[in-house]
Structure formats: C-alpha cells, structure tokens
Design a protein around this nucleic acid. Structure first.
Lengths: 102, 102
DNA sequence: TCAATTAGTCAAAAAAAAATGACTACATTA
DNA sequence: TAATGTAGTCATTTTTTTTTGACTAATTGA
C-alpha cells in the first residue's frame, strides 16, 4: 500500500479561491464592459478599499484573467483588460448567479 | 443625486463563497458519484477535519445544494444527496477546473 | 506653493475561516 | 464492561483574509 498525499489537487478549488476573493466578482463585472482603472474601480465600488482592490487586481492579473497595460506615465494611466481566459470566466459567473437565485 | 448602497448585491459572490469553502469542491465531487455520509467523507478526504466537513455539509445543505436524510437511527445512518440545484453546479465546477489549467 | 489626481505600498488591527482536541449520545460487538 | 462505529458539537487556538489609515512619488492646475 502506497501513501498518496491526495487532497491538494482539486483544480476547481484553486480557481474558486481566485474568483471568490472580496470584490473580485464585482471587478470582473466592471471589466466585462471595457477596460478598467484603479481609481475608476474605487469610485464605482464605494465600499471597497484600496488594499483589497489592489490585491484583487494583482491576483486576477497573476491568474491570467486580467492583463495590465501602462498607457502613459505622463498623466499616469494604467488599464486592466479581460484576457481571453477572463472572458471565458464571465459566463460561468453569470450562470452561478442564476443558480444562486433558484 | 441619491446615495445607493450598492456592492452588497452580487449574487455570484454569494454563490462563489458557498462553493469555495474548504473541502467543498471535493465533497461535491464525491457526492456526484452517489449518496455520501459523514464518516465516508472523512475517510475519503484523510486531510480534512470533522469541523470543516461538518460545516461544509451544513452550509451546502442550507444552500440547497445537498439534501440530508436520516435513513435509520438504530445504526445511525445519515445520507447527503445532490439536489437538482447541486447537480446544476457540477458542470460549472468542471468548467472552472478546465479553465484553471489553461 | 498648495492642493488634487494618478496608482498604488506598508504596517498594523480587526474579522472571518479553518484546525485541534476533548467531549456527547446512542447502539452494537467482544 | 470496554471498545467500536454512527454523527456529530463545543471551546479554543491558529491561520488567512479584509480593513484601516498613513504614506510615497510624479504631474497638473490654481
């Protein structure tokens, strides 16, 4: 009998963790409509705080769901866009939202 | 201009929270194959602890994803089954898992 | 020069989630 | 009588997540 350390490998769990962080679904919902920016998100989610939004954007970028682009440094302008993977996530969120309401 | 307290209502966020609790995806994966029982889950997920499994089963039941049935109290026998809603969640988890690997 | 806007970071505190170990309660088996 | 198996609960500790408030750094406008 061989001892196999299971449990660790549940790919769905990792993805769920990534998506379920605070403010992330709302941020993705904003991103669905077009490029988003840090301060824009802060204004549209008045109850969110800098740190959480900062962490959310960073993690979503690390997961390849958002891409970050520096448009210009003169009047500092940074944009986040949904990647292809990110666009693939949106319909899942919508389906989850529907299921939640049943 | 009227001040609207937004943010609270993101149905996807609630559902994501429910599904992303510790061990929940694994438990649902077991439930997909048939009725599950408390000690059975404990044996199949050796790294999980009673408390977490207990909380997971309770929350999944409260969300209407699992149904709980007492089969008999003589040799105490309680079963959890995926509800229709629960069965609706499974394909989403599989899709999330696929997306995670891209 | 002072204030505002851009996009954050940092350390610390507070809140929420998860883990640990002891315990309950009932019935069966040795 | 003691141990085993069922399905948990409870209080406490540990870990993780989220929030708070102060601070940075560059540029623009008054």
């Amino acid at each position: 009998m061989m001892e196999n350390k299971d449990a660790a490998e549940c790919p769905a769990e990792a993805m769920l963790k990534t998506l379920s962080g605070k403010w992330k679904p709302q941020i993705l919902r904003l991103a669905e409509k077009g490029a988003i920016r840090f301060n824009g998100v802060m204004k549209q989610l008045p109850d969110a705080n800098k740190q959480s939004v900062s962490v959310a954007l960073k993690e979503l970028e690390e997961e390849g769901i958002l891409s970050k682009t520096v448009i210009s440094q003169k009047p500092l302008h940074i944009e986040y866009l949904l990647t292809e993977k990110g666009r693939g996530v949106i319909p899942l969120l919508l389906t989850l939202a529907e299921l939640a309401q049943e």
